[in-house]
Nucleic acid binder design. Structure first.
Lengths: 163, 163
DNA sequence: ACCCACATGTAATGGGTTACATGATTTA
DNA sequence: TAAATCATGTAACCCATTACATGTGGGT
């Protein structure tokens, strides 16, 4: 079984054909989501783990003096990846939403602070949606946009729910 | 600074006036979200941590022979809680979504598997939305319902995006 | 020469998970 | 009275985070 970070990293390598740990770390670090930091301390050991499990094959790709390790997905890796990718039960879960987590407890503060808070969240979300898209394929961008749209719809519903 | 689990636990205690670690653990364990397990191994140390930081005040609430510790929020706790609760910057983040994480890589499988996967996710989500509501206040239920609605809207958009 | 981004890691720490231990209380 | 649930923890493990160490290469 793959963790979500492992699955996402493996998928990224599969998409690219081959990649270094650094390249994968950068993808997470530059993603619009704040959820994974893309730190070296997470990614380098993770890639090593996947290689040790036979899901990745390293190959020395010396370029200049510097040693570099490129990784490619193996057949076993493809099997594990598809199992993670198509796990509908996990995919249908609610995950974690920092706003949702707070909303249920907002009655603990005054109505003014509640409204102000929601206003700020909307402002940040809109600014976030309008900033230039992150680097990535058009497909990824489109999925991101659709998610932003759905979230905006939710934010629009909330006044009626929160009061 | 509070972590999200700490914030949510503190908020739950604040809402209830007083609660045991067990009661808090049960809330997470029975929540419709799978994200936090609500395990004793997470919650008991967490509550102790908050008490050690002066955000919670324990009080022996012996009931029967059994020793029990009730916790109440302190003034310092209320300050920390409000800081977490009204942190709009964090609240506006994308969090983690197990479906969103997978969608960007679905091109790695055949169109048939993709469609089948999305169909399964929709089926599970609908079943999830129609099952009897979890135990909780009407406010919480309403927020949950609105979230489910927004997610259903997103799922409806996805065919056009994924192709 | 100097600074910054690229690049590859390791170390210490934090905190959540599963699994286990132990005992009290309720229900069939 | 046996089983299930309530209730309170602890122990070992896993893995992501921050911070650090080290070196390369390009731009000013």
């Amino acid at each position: 079984m793959l963790t979500n970070l492992e699955g996402a990293a493996l998928a990224e390598i599969a998409s690219r054909g081959a990649a270094t740990s650094y390249a994968i770390a950068r993808v997470f670090a530059r993603s619009p989501s704040e959820y994974w930091s893309g730190s070296a301390g997470a990614v380098y050991p993770l890639i090593k783990r996947l290689a040790a499990r036979g899901l990745l094959q390293p190959s020395a790709a010396a370029e200049g003096r510097r040693q570099r390790l490129d990784y490619q997905i193996t057949d076993a890796g493809r099997v594990a990846l598809e199992e993670w990718l198509l796990d509908a039960q996990s995919a249908a879960g609610m995950g974690f939403d920092p706003l949702r987590t707070r909303l249920g407890h907002l009655h603990l503060v005054s109505p003014e602070k509640r409204e102000d808070f929601l206003m700020q969240v909307r402002a940040i979300s809109e600014a976030f949606a309008q900033r230039p898209a992150f680097e990535g394929e058009p497909r990824m961008i489109a999925i991101h946009q659709s998610w932003l749209k759905a979230r905006a719809m939710w934010l629009a519903m909330l006044d009626a729910v929160i009061k």
